[in-house]
Protein backbone atom coordinates (compact mmCIF):
# COMPACT_ATOMS: atom_id res chain seq x y z
CA UNK A 1 0.00 0.00 0.00
CA UNK A 2 2.66 2.43 1.07
CA UNK A 3 4.90 1.28 -1.82
CA UNK A 4 2.16 2.06 -4.32
CA UNK A 5 1.64 5.49 -2.82
CA UNK A 6 5.34 6.19 -3.00
CA UNK A 7 5.44 5.08 -6.63
CA UNK A 8 2.52 7.41 -7.37
CA UNK A 9 4.46 10.28 -5.85
CA UNK A 10 7.53 9.42 -7.91
CA UNK A 11 5.45 9.43 -11.08
CA UNK A 12 3.94 12.74 -10.03
CA UNK A 13 7.40 14.28 -10.18
CA UNK A 14 7.43 13.94 -14.00
CA UNK A 15 5.21 16.98 -14.65
CA UNK A 16 7.17 18.91 -12.01
CA UNK A 17 10.42 18.15 -13.79
CA UNK A 18 8.80 19.12 -17.08
CA UNK A 19 7.83 22.50 -15.64
CA UNK A 20 11.30 23.01 -14.23
CA UNK A 21 12.82 22.23 -17.62
CA UNK A 22 10.69 24.83 -19.40
CA UNK A 23 11.38 27.46 -16.74
CA UNK A 24 15.11 27.04 -16.70
CA UNK A 25 15.16 27.03 -20.50
CA UNK A 26 13.27 30.30 -20.70
CA UNK A 27 15.18 32.01 -17.91
CA UNK A 28 18.50 31.21 -19.55
CA UNK A 29 17.27 32.61 -22.86
CA UNK A 30 16.02 35.75 -21.10
CA UNK A 31 19.39 36.51 -19.54
CA UNK A 32 21.35 38.88 -21.71
CA UNK A 33 24.60 37.55 -23.23
CA UNK A 34 25.12 35.23 -26.16
CA UNK A 35 26.97 31.95 -25.49
CA UNK A 36 28.94 32.09 -28.69
CA UNK A 37 29.99 35.71 -28.13
CA UNK A 38 31.21 34.83 -24.67
CA UNK A 39 33.10 31.76 -25.91
CA UNK A 40 34.74 33.76 -28.66
CA UNK A 41 35.50 36.67 -26.36
CA UNK A 42 37.60 34.30 -24.33
CA UNK A 43 39.27 32.71 -27.33
CA UNK A 44 40.24 35.89 -29.15
CA UNK A 45 39.45 36.96 -32.71
CA UNK A 46 37.40 34.45 -34.69
CA UNK A 47 35.83 34.77 -38.09
CA UNK A 48 32.14 35.48 -38.48
CA UNK A 49 31.81 32.22 -40.39
CA UNK A 50 33.15 30.21 -37.48
CA UNK A 51 30.65 31.86 -35.10
CA UNK A 52 27.86 31.13 -37.52
CA UNK A 53 28.93 27.49 -37.66
CA UNK A 54 28.86 27.21 -33.84
CA UNK A 55 25.45 28.88 -33.62
CA UNK A 56 24.17 26.35 -36.12
CA UNK A 57 25.75 23.45 -34.24
CA UNK A 58 24.07 24.54 -30.99
CA UNK A 59 20.74 25.16 -32.78
CA UNK A 60 20.95 28.75 -31.61
CA UNK A 61 19.93 29.91 -35.07
CA UNK A 62 16.60 28.13 -34.76
CA UNK A 63 13.43 29.74 -33.39
CA UNK A 64 13.02 29.45 -29.60
CA UNK A 65 10.09 27.07 -29.91
CA UNK A 66 12.15 24.63 -31.95
CA UNK A 67 15.06 24.91 -29.50
CA UNK A 68 12.73 24.19 -26.60
CA UNK A 69 11.21 21.25 -28.41
CA UNK A 70 14.61 19.76 -29.18
CA UNK A 71 15.72 20.22 -25.57
CA UNK A 72 12.59 18.65 -24.09
CA UNK A 73 12.63 15.77 -26.54
CA UNK A 74 16.22 14.89 -25.67
CA UNK A 75 15.76 15.49 -21.97
CA UNK A 76 12.81 13.13 -21.90
CA UNK A 77 15.08 10.40 -23.23
CA UNK A 78 17.65 11.23 -20.58
CA UNK A 79 19.97 13.09 -22.94
CA UNK A 80 20.90 16.46 -21.50
CA UNK A 81 23.07 17.49 -24.45
CA UNK A 82 26.66 18.64 -24.71
CA UNK A 83 28.34 21.39 -22.78
CA UNK A 84 29.16 24.26 -25.15
CA UNK A 85 32.37 25.04 -23.37
CA UNK A 86 33.67 21.72 -22.14
CA UNK A 87 32.51 19.79 -25.22
CA UNK A 88 31.47 16.81 -23.16
CA UNK A 89 28.08 15.28 -22.40
CA UNK A 90 26.36 17.26 -19.64
CA UNK A 91 25.36 14.05 -17.92
CA UNK A 92 29.00 12.99 -17.59
CA UNK A 93 29.95 16.33 -16.06
CA UNK A 94 27.10 16.09 -13.59
CA UNK A 95 27.84 12.49 -12.61
CA UNK A 96 31.43 13.50 -11.96
CA UNK A 97 30.46 16.37 -9.69
CA UNK A 98 27.33 15.06 -7.99
CA UNK A 99 29.04 12.90 -5.31
CA UNK A 100 31.01 15.90 -4.02
CA UNK A 101 27.82 17.91 -3.65
CA UNK A 102 25.98 15.05 -1.97
CA UNK A 103 28.86 14.52 0.43
CA UNK A 104 28.90 18.19 1.34
CA UNK A 105 25.13 18.38 1.76
CA UNK A 106 25.03 15.23 3.88
CA UNK A 107 27.97 16.44 5.94
CA UNK A 108 26.25 19.75 6.53
CA UNK A 109 22.94 18.06 7.36
CA UNK A 110 24.56 15.64 9.81
CA UNK A 111 26.55 18.43 11.42
CA UNK A 112 23.43 20.58 11.65
CA UNK A 113 21.37 17.82 13.25
CA UNK A 114 24.11 16.74 15.67
CA UNK A 115 24.21 20.31 16.96
CA UNK A 116 20.51 21.07 16.74
CA UNK A 117 19.08 17.97 18.43
CA UNK A 118 20.77 18.26 21.85
CA UNK A 119 20.64 22.05 21.81
CA UNK A 120 16.93 22.13 20.96
CA UNK A 121 16.03 19.47 23.52
CA UNK A 122 18.11 20.83 26.38
CA UNK A 123 17.04 24.42 25.75
CA UNK A 124 13.41 23.35 26.01
CA UNK A 125 13.89 21.21 29.11
CA UNK A 126 15.89 23.98 30.78
CA UNK A 127 13.83 26.84 29.41
CA UNK A 128 15.19 30.30 30.29
CA UNK A 129 18.37 28.82 31.73
CA UNK A 130 21.69 30.41 30.84
CA UNK A 131 22.30 27.59 28.38
CA UNK A 132 18.93 28.21 26.74
CA UNK A 133 19.53 31.92 26.33
CA UNK A 134 23.06 31.35 25.10
CA UNK A 135 22.09 28.77 22.48
CA UNK A 136 19.11 30.75 21.24
CA UNK A 137 21.32 33.81 20.82
CA UNK A 138 23.75 31.56 18.93
CA UNK A 139 20.93 30.26 16.78
CA UNK A 140 19.86 33.80 15.98
CA UNK A 141 23.41 34.55 14.92
CA UNK A 142 23.53 31.34 12.86
CA UNK A 143 20.38 32.31 10.99
CA UNK A 144 21.44 35.85 10.25
CA UNK A 145 25.06 35.22 9.29
CA UNK A 146 25.75 34.93 5.53
CA UNK A 147 27.46 31.66 4.60
CA UNK A 148 30.32 33.23 2.64
CA UNK A 149 31.18 35.41 5.61
CA UNK A 150 31.16 32.52 8.06
CA UNK A 151 33.22 30.46 5.60
CA UNK A 152 35.87 33.14 5.31
CA UNK A 153 36.07 33.59 9.08
CA UNK A 154 36.47 29.85 9.57
CA UNK A 155 39.19 29.70 6.94
CA UNK A 156 40.99 32.61 8.56
CA UNK A 157 40.86 31.03 12.00
CA UNK A 158 41.29 27.31 11.39
CA UNK A 159 43.35 27.26 8.22
CA UNK A 160 45.33 30.47 8.01
CA UNK A 161 46.02 31.08 11.71
CA UNK A 162 45.91 27.70 13.37
CA UNK A 163 46.83 25.54 10.35
CA UNK A 164 44.52 22.82 11.59
CA UNK A 165 42.42 22.36 8.51
CA UNK A 166 42.98 22.64 4.76
CA UNK A 167 41.57 25.55 2.77
CA UNK A 168 40.63 23.81 -0.44
CA UNK A 169 39.71 20.52 -2.06
CA UNK A 170 38.24 17.24 -0.86
CA UNK A 171 41.24 15.07 0.03
CA UNK A 172 45.03 14.84 -0.09
CA UNK A 173 45.91 12.79 -3.10
CA UNK A 174 48.82 11.31 -1.19
CA UNK A 175 46.22 9.39 0.84
CA UNK A 176 45.71 7.18 -2.21
CA UNK A 177 41.96 6.78 -1.95
CA UNK A 178 40.24 4.22 -4.11
CA UNK A 179 36.89 5.58 -5.22
CA UNK A 180 33.82 3.43 -4.72
CA UNK A 181 30.80 5.67 -4.37
CA UNK A 182 32.44 9.03 -4.90
CA UNK A 183 31.61 10.07 -1.32
CA UNK A 184 35.16 10.26 -0.07
CA UNK A 185 34.51 9.84 3.65
CA UNK A 186 32.36 6.81 2.96
CA UNK A 187 34.88 5.41 0.46
CA UNK A 188 37.77 5.73 2.88
CA UNK A 189 35.73 3.90 5.50
CA UNK A 190 34.73 1.21 3.04
CA UNK A 191 38.28 0.64 1.89
CA UNK A 192 39.61 0.86 5.43
CA UNK A 193 42.02 3.62 4.48
CA UNK A 194 42.63 5.45 7.75
CA UNK A 195 44.76 8.15 6.29
CA UNK A 196 42.03 8.92 3.77
CA UNK A 197 39.37 8.99 6.51
CA UNK A 198 41.30 11.63 8.38
CA UNK A 199 42.13 13.61 5.29
CA UNK A 200 38.63 13.59 3.81
CA UNK A 201 37.05 14.49 7.15
CA UNK A 202 39.48 17.37 7.59
CA UNK A 203 38.66 18.69 4.16
CA UNK A 204 34.94 18.28 4.71
CA UNK A 205 34.87 19.91 8.14
CA UNK A 206 34.89 23.62 7.32
CA UNK A 207 32.58 23.54 4.28
CA UNK A 208 30.11 21.28 6.13
CA UNK A 209 30.13 23.53 9.20
CA UNK A 210 29.68 26.63 7.04
CA UNK A 211 26.78 25.12 5.14
CA UNK A 212 25.29 23.38 8.19
CA UNK A 213 25.35 26.33 10.58
CA UNK A 214 22.11 27.75 9.23
CA UNK A 215 20.44 24.34 9.34
CA UNK A 216 21.57 23.84 12.93
CA UNK A 217 20.18 27.21 13.93
CA UNK A 218 16.80 26.80 12.25
CA UNK A 219 16.27 23.22 13.39
CA UNK A 220 17.35 23.96 16.97
CA UNK A 221 14.82 26.76 17.23
CA UNK A 222 11.97 24.74 15.79
CA UNK A 223 12.80 21.72 17.92
CA UNK A 224 12.97 23.87 21.03
CA UNK A 225 9.60 25.46 20.48
CA UNK A 226 7.95 22.13 19.59
CA UNK A 227 9.49 20.53 22.66
CA UNK A 228 8.22 23.36 24.83
CA UNK A 229 4.76 22.61 23.54
CA UNK A 230 4.88 18.83 23.86
CA UNK A 231 6.46 19.05 27.32
CA UNK A 232 3.40 20.99 28.44
CA UNK A 233 0.96 18.47 27.01
CA UNK A 234 -1.35 16.19 28.94
CA UNK A 235 0.27 13.03 27.62
CA UNK A 236 3.55 14.09 29.17
CA UNK A 237 1.76 14.47 32.50
CA UNK A 238 0.29 11.01 31.99
CA UNK A 239 3.75 9.59 31.27
CA UNK A 240 4.98 11.05 34.54
CA UNK A 241 1.89 9.76 36.34
CA UNK A 242 2.68 6.28 35.02
CA UNK A 243 6.04 6.47 36.76
CA UNK A 244 8.25 7.08 33.73
CA UNK A 245 11.67 8.55 34.47
CA UNK A 246 12.36 12.10 33.42
CA UNK A 247 14.59 11.16 30.50
CA UNK A 248 11.96 8.71 29.24
CA UNK A 249 9.37 11.46 29.45
CA UNK A 250 11.58 13.86 27.50
CA UNK A 251 13.17 11.55 24.94
CA UNK A 252 10.28 9.23 24.30
CA UNK A 253 7.00 11.01 24.89
CA UNK A 254 7.87 14.64 24.28
CA UNK A 255 10.57 14.28 21.62
CA UNK A 256 8.69 11.78 19.50
CA UNK A 257 5.87 14.26 19.00
CA UNK A 258 8.14 17.28 18.72
CA UNK A 259 9.91 15.61 15.79
CA UNK A 260 6.77 15.83 13.67
CA UNK A 261 6.97 19.58 12.96
CA UNK A 262 10.76 19.43 13.05
CA UNK A 263 10.96 16.93 10.21
CA UNK A 264 9.00 19.28 7.97
CA UNK A 265 11.48 22.04 8.63
CA UNK A 266 14.43 19.73 8.02
CA UNK A 267 12.84 18.93 4.65
CA UNK A 268 12.70 22.61 3.79
CA UNK A 269 16.33 22.98 4.84
CA UNK A 270 17.36 20.50 2.14
CA UNK A 271 16.50 23.19 -0.38
CA UNK A 272 18.67 25.61 1.56
CA UNK A 273 21.52 23.09 1.57
CA UNK A 274 21.30 22.71 -2.20
CA UNK A 275 21.01 26.42 -2.84
CA UNK A 276 23.68 27.41 -0.35
CA UNK A 277 26.21 25.02 -1.75
CA UNK A 278 26.95 27.30 -4.72
CA UNK A 279 28.44 29.89 -2.41
CA UNK A 280 30.12 27.43 -0.06
CA UNK A 281 31.59 25.36 -2.88
CA UNK A 282 32.99 28.52 -4.41
CA UNK A 283 34.49 29.74 -1.13
CA UNK A 284 36.11 26.39 -0.38
CA UNK A 285 36.99 25.32 -3.91
CA UNK A 286 34.78 22.28 -3.48
CA UNK A 287 34.49 20.50 -6.83
CA UNK A 288 30.73 19.98 -6.80
CA UNK A 289 27.64 20.86 -8.80
CA UNK A 290 27.42 24.31 -7.24
CA UNK A 291 30.68 25.47 -8.72
CA UNK A 292 29.88 23.75 -11.98
CA UNK A 293 26.60 25.61 -12.35
CA UNK A 294 28.06 28.96 -11.35
CA UNK A 295 30.73 28.70 -14.05
CA UNK A 296 28.17 27.45 -16.54
CA UNK A 297 25.92 30.44 -15.88
CA UNK A 298 28.79 32.88 -16.43
CA UNK A 299 29.60 31.12 -19.72
CA UNK A 300 25.95 31.00 -20.81
CA UNK A 301 26.55 27.28 -21.23
CA UNK A 302 22.83 26.63 -21.73
CA UNK A 303 22.79 22.81 -21.78
CA UNK A 304 24.98 22.55 -18.70
CA UNK A 305 22.89 25.03 -16.70
CA UNK A 306 19.68 23.34 -17.75
CA UNK A 307 20.98 19.91 -16.87
CA UNK A 308 22.36 20.93 -13.50
CA UNK A 309 19.23 22.81 -12.47
CA UNK A 310 17.13 19.80 -13.36
CA UNK A 311 19.31 17.59 -11.19
CA UNK A 312 18.92 20.10 -8.36
CA UNK A 313 15.18 20.10 -8.78
CA UNK A 314 15.03 16.32 -8.91
CA UNK A 315 17.14 15.98 -5.76
CA UNK A 316 14.94 18.48 -3.97
CA UNK A 317 11.73 16.70 -4.94
CA UNK A 318 13.14 13.33 -3.92
CA UNK A 319 14.42 14.66 -0.60
CA UNK A 320 10.96 16.00 0.13
CA UNK A 321 9.41 12.70 -0.77
CA UNK A 322 11.70 10.97 1.72
CA UNK A 323 10.71 13.54 4.34
CA UNK A 324 7.03 12.94 3.62
CA UNK A 325 7.46 9.19 4.01
CA UNK A 326 9.35 9.71 7.26
CA UNK A 327 6.55 12.00 8.40
CA UNK A 328 3.95 9.26 8.00
CA UNK A 329 6.01 7.01 10.24
CA UNK A 330 6.21 9.69 12.92
CA UNK A 331 2.64 10.84 12.73
CA UNK A 332 0.13 8.00 12.68
CA UNK A 333 -2.68 10.41 11.80
CA UNK A 334 -1.18 11.12 8.39
CA UNK A 335 -1.06 8.75 5.46
CA UNK A 336 0.75 9.59 2.24
Amino acid sequence: MRAIKILERVIATIPIMFGVAIMVFLFMRLTPGDPVDIMMGQGGAVSAGEMERLRHEFHLDQPLSIQLWLFLKDAFRGDLGYSYVQKRPVIDLIVERLPATIELALGALIFGLIIAMPVGIISAVRQNSLLDRFSMAGAFLGISMPAFWLGIILILVFSVRLHWLPVQGRIDHSAGLQEVTGLYVLDSLLTGNREAVASSLKHLALPAVTLGAGVAAVVARVLRSSMLETLRSDYVTLARAKGASEWMVVLKHALRNALIPTVTVVGLQIGVLLGGNMIVETVFGWPGLGRLVVTAIFNRDFPLVQGTVMVYAFTFVMANLIVDVLYTYLNPKITL
Partner: peptide
Protein backbone atom coordinates in the same frame (compact mmCIF):
# COMPACT_ATOMS: atom_id res chain seq x y z
CA UNK B 1 1.23 4.17 38.32
CA UNK B 2 1.99 1.25 40.63
CA UNK B 3 0.36 2.23 43.92
CA UNK B 4 -1.51 5.37 42.91
CA UNK B 5 -2.78 5.91 39.38
CA UNK B 6 -4.55 8.83 37.82
CA UNK B 7 -7.05 9.27 35.03
CA UNK B 8 -7.65 12.61 33.43
CA UNK B 9 -10.49 14.73 32.17
CA UNK B 10 -9.68 14.92 28.46
CA UNK B 11 -8.87 11.44 27.18
CA UNK B 12 -7.78 12.45 23.68
CA UNK B 13 -5.11 14.90 24.75
CA UNK B 14 -3.95 12.59 27.52
CA UNK B 15 -3.14 9.65 25.28
CA UNK B 16 0.11 10.02 23.37
CA UNK B 17 -0.90 10.41 19.70
CA UNK B 18 2.30 8.78 18.45
Amino acid sequence: GREISMIFQDPLSTLNPA
